[in-house]
Every structure is written in C-alpha cells, then in structure tokens.
Amino acid sequence: MSLDYVKFSNGFEKFMPKEYRDMVEHGPFGKKVSVSQVGSFKEVLEEHPMCAGCAMTLFIRLAMVAFPNPEDTITVGTAGCGRLAISQAAIPFVYGNYGDQNGVASGLSRGLRLRFGDKPKDVVVMAGDGGTADIGFQQVLHSWFRKERFTTIMLDNEVYGNTGGQESGMTNRGAVLKMAPLGKKFEKMDMVQMAKVAGCAYVATVVPNNPRRVESVIKKAVLIAREVGSTYIQAYTSCNIEYAIPTDKVMEDAKAVENDRYQFTEYVSEEAKQYLTERYGYKEFLAKPAAAIPNKA
C-alpha cells in the first residue's frame, strides 16, 4: 500500500517482463495523470479475457486512469464479468464472495484507517448490477446507512451477462433475454433514489461515452469517500453479447441509452461540496456571483 510495492527488488529488474518494467517506470504511480494523456503512459490495467468491444471494459479502464492515487487504492469485487478485468490490474483486488463485497469493503476501509491513520487509502467496490442490486443488496444498503467511507460503483449492464442472460433487478421492464423469454415483469430498481435515501454523500449516473465525465465523477466519488461518507456511481455498461449490440455500435448504443433513460445526474451533499471546495480546490460548488440587476432607469 505505497509506492514501494510497485518497485523492483534489488537485482530483479532484468528478470521482470517488459510490461512490468514499463508499468514501474512509466505507469501512473505517484503522478497525476488524466484521461487526456492515455496512450502516452503505461496504464495499470493489463490484458484480460473480457469480450471484444465491451463497454464495461472501457468504463473499468477509464476508472483506473481516474483513481486519484492508484498506489493507495484497493478494489473490491464479486462474481460477474467486471472482475475478469479489475483483477488484471496493478492495483490490489479483493474478490468477495457473491454479494458480500460491501461488507468486505466496510471492514477493509475501517482496518486501513486504523492501520494508516490519516493517510488516505481508497477502497473502491466495483460490482455488477446483480452483485449490487440483487444478491449484494442487503450489504450494499447497510454499508450506506452506516455511512461507510468507500466508493461503490455499479457496472450496470442490465443483465446477468456472465451466466447466460438472466434478468436482474436492474433489467428494464419488458426486456426479453435468453433466460427471461417472457420478458421482465417488474420495473428497473431505482438504486439512485435508494442511495440518496440511505444517506450517500455523492450519487452519480454516468455512461462511458464521455471519458472526461467518467474521470470527473470517479475522482469526486473517491475523494468524498475519504472523509465525508459513502459514495455511489451507477454506470451504464452495456452487454453487447446478451443485448446483441454489434461491437462497432456500442458507443452509438451508449449515446442512445444516455438520451433515453441514463442521463448524467449528479447529487452532491452540502457537506461534500464544502469538503471538495476547501480540501481539493474544486471551484464548481462555489456560490455563483449574483446576476447584475438590470438598470430600471
């Protein structure tokens, strides 16, 4: 949990694979990198077995670029497609049993605070819609009600993509899937509203067709979770296999879904606004100067 863990042990450099050497020497550790610089530095995410053209992969990639301190971050996941990529990065990954990722993250976050005191160590949960809204629902909600200080990210592909296409709580009403041939009978769960009711300090919905917005949202969520409270990001990350989206049309679909039902929304509590402004110099939450009063004369 420091820059030391990505350095070479003396005498071992020449035995390390090229990808590892590149990551140590030209990775994002200890530097400030942004999405606009990708392609010019070695990213922490390595090769993984996720499908070609997967929007979830793109979101995970962008999220890993956006982490404010990747060397001081631990990701927590659960069963689902996302963990196939999240686990293949130079960021420690904890694989929770199905559904207990937010319980694991609660303990981890508290333990790290005991061990490292005020030095920020970020815990980020990234799990699918099934892991977050169905099987892990209880632990997710309770971690929010307890105001556990870590970030929960739902990779919402609106289906159990990893197991052949069953409906999840986040599937839209009426959607017909391979393992839900009669169509889903119930509405999509409103996890955003539940996050607000449960007291999350930051709640956002985002689609990966705007990389800089994804970066901004992740940074804010992780920073707020350091001190203020729970943060929640719900990202639409289509499953191009189960929803039969041609891979070269994945971003077109993302744009259409964003316009239809996944508009960018962002809720920031007053405490979180103050924290971001005072601690990290965010200017967007400063009071706007009053508009000039038109001269009536």
Partner: peptide
C-alpha cells in the same frame, strides 16, 4: 486512445 476498451492498445 480514450475510447478503446483495451488498455495500452491504441497509443500515441
């Protein structure tokens, strides 16, 4: 470079 789903694939 920003939209490729694969990391370290489209470089500059």
């Amino acid at each position: 470079t920003q939209y490729c789903p694969e990391a370290n694939t489209i470089l500059y």
